[in-house]
């Protein structure tokens, strides 16, 4: 049997903690050496104290960003999966829609943010839409790729077993595409917060992106950094959960190299 990953992940936790500690030390060293003003670059201690003192405020905004990210992730991944399945079933659809999809990727998502705010308002909807837009394409294209690259031997086997197309799709092609899909979802988990925060920067009254702009405007740079820290923690947490689920799915599929 393959070795358990328990001891491995413990080593990785230490590595991450060590890297974090090292970065904080470098940061503090820069602040000491350059004697930079705290409204340009506050030290780690100042940021930590802002994080603790303003925790309730940060928590309130973090929850809103988390809702936007999770909703965007869920909707974007679902839409991506459904699109890939539909394009797999219809060759004409693939020929018509794929070029449009690829073309759409040349539009920077930043450029769409003001439009989405105009159309969907300053509330959650425009941020969720941003996250959906940014998540949708990687999920669609990786899953579509996986569905198109089912090992030929499996399809030969299904053919000689007189399998209807639908059964082949449901029982062979989709499970065989799981590693591709999960690689897309892993990317999506990192991209979704970017979408939500861009949305908040363009126009919002809530969320960590809004809090960062607000703190910046009031020269509360320590709070701005604390909000950034909260955003990092949020992204890492969401990614960790998504990676865990993806690893499980891959392990089930028996196609993972890493389990």
């Amino acid at each position: 049997m393959k070795p358990e990953s328990g001891s491995l992940s413990l080593i990785r936790v230490w590595e991450i903690l060590f890297a974090g500690l090292f970065m904080i030390l470098v940061w503090q060293a820069v602040v000491w050496v350059t004697q930079v003003e705290s409204f340009i670059l506050p030290g780690p201690l100042a940021v930590a104290s802002a994080f603790v003192n303003q925790f309730a405020l940060i928590w309130h905004h973090a929850l809103i960003t988390a809702v936007e990210v999770l909703a965007g992730l869920l909707l974007g991944v679902t839409a991506g999966i459904l699109t890939a399945l539909n394009l797999t079933l219809s060759e004409r659809g693939r020929k018509l829609i794929m070029p449009a999809l690829v073309m759409s990727q040349t539009i920077p998502v930043f450029a769409l943010a003001p439009l989405l705010t105009l159309w969907l308002g300053y509330g959650l909807a425009s941020k969720i839409a941003m996250a959906v837009l940014i998540v949708y394409f990687p999920v669609t294209s990786t899953f579509l790729d996986g569905l198109a690259n089912t090992p030929k031997g499996y399809l030969d086997l299904a053919h000689t077993m007189r399998s209807p197309n639908r059964s082949t799709l449901m029982q062979i092609r989709i499970p065989a595409a799981i590693p591709s899909l999960t690689s897309g979802i892993r990317l999506a988990a990192v991209y979704a917060p970017i979408g939500a925060v861009i949305g908040e920067w363009v126009g919002a009254s809530n969320g960590l992106g809004y809090l960062m702009l607000l703190a910046n405007g009031r020269v509360k740079i320590d709070l701005m950094f604390a909000a950034l820290l909260a955003l990092c923690i949020l992204t890492i947490t969401i990614r960790a959960v998504v990676v865990l689920l993806c690893n499980r799915a891959e392990k089930w599929s028996g196609l993972s190299e890493r389990n």
Binding site: M161, P164, T168, I172, P175, G254
Partner: peptide, 29 residues
């Protein structure tokens, strides 16, 4: 009326031995 067996076993890695053996019936419902 043909069954096919290749050099590679073509077992589906997400199914158990039992499910792999009865794959044909499962595909044809």
């Amino acid at each position: 009326r043909v069954a096919y067996m290749a050099q590679s076993d073509l077992l589906l890695p997400w199914l158990t031995v039992r499910q792999n053996v009865s794959l044909g019936a499962s595909l044809r419902r």
